[in-house]
Structure formats: C-alpha cells, structure tokens
Design a binder for these strands. Structure first.
Lengths: 202, 202
DNA sequence: GCTTGATTTGACCAAGTGGTCAAAGGCACG
DNA sequence: CGTGCCTTTGACCACTTGGTCAAATCAAGC
C-alpha cells in the first residue's frame, strides 16, 4: 500500500513542490477548474516535467486528498476519555478552529470535494471516517451517562463542531466581506467557547 | 437594470427549463466543471438552441446566482424586532434549516461560488449582504441590551446559524455517510433548537 | 396556401485541455 | 574524459469545450 518512495533528493523536492502548488490551485478552483499548466506554472516547472513526477492531474489530486484526510482527522482522534469532558471538547473545538485558520487551503480542498458528492473519497467517508465518528460518539455518550455534560445528540454535536470551525475557512470570503475585512478568528474562538460551554455544561 | 422580459409563452418555458437544468448541473459540478452540453442535455435542448435563449454559459450562471442571492436572504430579512427575541431567532434557524432541506442545490451553488472566492458576487457580499447583516446585528444588540437574550457577538451568532444550517445541505454526502444514510434533518432541528436555546436564554 | 418572424438544428471552428514522445541537457562516478 | 542514468523540454496529438452560422422547420395571421 505504501507509495514507492522518491529516490533522489531532487525528486523529493520536486514532488513536494508540485503537491504544494497543486494544493494552491486545486483549493482555489477545484479539480475540474484547475489545469495542469496552472499547477506547473505555480510549481515553476514545465508541464511535461511535472508529468514526469506524477502520472496525471488526478494522481496529484488524489495524493493530496488522501494525505490530507489523515491529518485532517487528527484532532478528532485526539479526543479521549481521559481528561474532563467539557475541557476535552473545548480543546477539540480550539484545535479545529486553529486548523481552519492555519490550513484554509486544505479545508477548502475537502469542502470542494464533498460539495460535489465526494466521488473520490466516498469509501473513506463510509469507512474510516464513520468508524472514527462512531467511536467518538460512544465516548460522548459515556460522558452524558456519567452526567459530565448535558444530554445532546453526539453525532450532531460533532457535525456542529465541524460546521462552525470549517465555516471560517471555507466561507472566509463571505465572513470577511461582512466584517469589513476584520480578522474573524479571535472573536470566533471566544464565541465558540461560549456556545459549547452553555450547550454542554451540566 | 431589469432584464428584457421573455415575450412568448415558449420563451418563458424554455428559459425556466434551462435555468432549472443549469441549477442542477452547476450545483453539482461548479461553474468550470459544468459544460454547456451537459446543461442542454439536462434541459432536453440542443446546444445551439440553448444558446439561442442565453448568450453564454456564464449568463445562465449569473442569472441563477443573482436571483438566488435575493431569495436566499429572505429568512434573514424576516428577522424582526417585533416578536419575542428567542422565538424569533429560533424561527430563523428553523426557516434556514428548512431551506437547506428543501433547496440543497441552491445552497451548494452558493457554497461553491464562495468557496472559490466569490469572484462574481464580491460586490453583493460587501454591499447588500453586509448592510443587511449590520442591520440585523443591531436588532440583536437591542435584544441583548434589553436583557432578552444572553450577551453574544451578533455577527458570530449569525455566522453560526448559517454554518450550522447550510452544513446539512453542503456536506450532505458526508453527513449521510457518517449517519449510515439516515435522514439527518429531524435530529438536526432538535439539536439546533437545544443549542441556540441554551446559548441565548437569559 | 402564403408569408413572416420565431424557433431549431447540423456542421463547423478556434481555443484550451490532458497527455505523449523523442531528443537534448545535466550529473555522478569510474 | 566518457558512460549511463536522471531530468528537462519543444513539438505534437487527440479530444473537449464554448460559441457561431446558415439553412431548415414551425406557427400564426392573412
């Protein structure tokens, strides 16, 4: 299952340059809206040279999508039964909001893919993602049963965290237009803490 | 500014057929991902025939976008100082969620446009939309000052309503994958009522 | 049936697209 | 230096795409 690793120093460099450029372009224009020339230009390579490192436009896109899927779910994986319930959830919200702030391109790439029906990651959604969410929903249910947080639907709780945090990356243009260009994140963090605290504090 | 109205019965019918087909296709594949042939096929017309009613692919897209922008904000316009604060806001949430359920294509069309930086509606966002939101934020501030709801940032409150409701349309694929195909809307409505009630009830 | 304007279409085109290929350049190592 | 391999590129190709156009068809009033 492991991709044959790049051999030379230069391969490693060029492959990562291409992926970086691909993320830039794909996140802005979507898969069909992006052209190989655009990506090549952004990467500072000629088109045939780019296609020397990746067999096709789709291969770049897929590699981005799959490697992202992993890291994107890390904050949720870190949600553990260990600590206290509410702080644990608030931490998750903060981590997720930080990702929206620091990795908006990644967020948008995903959003675009899912918006179009997630044709390339349907399996991952119904498989790994569902499994992970089911597992964490169970953790939340325990917290509720133990009276540590108020009773809410665990699935919709998770959806709401995703929706609220990713909104600031995916709809950044709209948010900033309404706020007159002001940075939304400090306000967002405070608001979300308030929101989930009042929702969950027993 | 008014578009020259269609004259004959058949023009009216064909134009609306095309817009309907355009909504179908554009909402699924985005502007660049959609082809004129696709839209023509969906409308049951030949490509040159379609281009007899609209001058270009972009014209269809723009007409959809602009006419949508209007109706899409109606629920927010209906938010009035009249009634009691909390029920008024909960009504807004319910109306917005109903739109996500009943008009997911419209929601996705917008989401796609904004995701790509809203190049075609930037002015509307910074103009009409900002004005409307500023106005309603003021209403919310009055409610807070009068002690009718808890103190929250009015802008982020509005963003959160948008994010939470539209998520169920825009990320439908993901939501249903995680829920195993189950209809998310009944659960969502209950959860959102609970969420905003606990956030806002004084 | 005839005329006139609205409607429809097959054939076509120029530009853009993803991708190929043979040949040329570069580079490390004997 | 020379040899073998990695890297880069200009030229090219098949196909798709948005859009045009002249000619054909249709519909309604006379």
């Amino acid at each position: 299952m492991t991709k044959s690793a790049p051999r030379t120093r230069i391969q490693e460099k060029n492959r990562s340059t291409i992926l970086e450029a691909g993320l830039d372009v794909f996140s802005q224009f979507g898969f069909r809206g992006s052209t190989v020339d655009q990506i090549a230009e952004a990467a500072g390579l000629s088109k045939p040279n780019l296609l020397y490192y990746f067999p096709s436009k789709e291969a770049i896109y897929l590699e981005l999508l799959n490697s992202l899927l992993d890291t994107w779910l890390d904050p949720l994986r870190a949600l553990n039964d260990d600590g206290k319930a509410l702080p644990e959830i608030l931490d998750y919200v903060r981590r997720k909001l930080a990702m929206a702030r620091d990795f908006p391109r990644e967020s948008r790439l995903f959003a675009g893919e899912i918006l179009q029906g997630a044709p390339r990651i349907e399996d991952a959604l119904k498989g790994d993602l569902k499994t992970l969410v089911d597992e964490k929903a169970e953790v939340i249910r325990h917290w509720i049963a133990a009276g540590k947080i108020k009773e809410v639907d665990p699935y919709h709780l998770i959806f709401s965290i995703w929706a609220l945090t990713q909104h600031y990356a995916d709809f950044d243009t709209q948010v900033r237009a309404v706020l007159g260009g002001q940075d939304p994140f400090p306000g967002a963090e405070h608001y979300l803490e308030q929101l989930f605290t009042s929702l969950l504090k027993p």
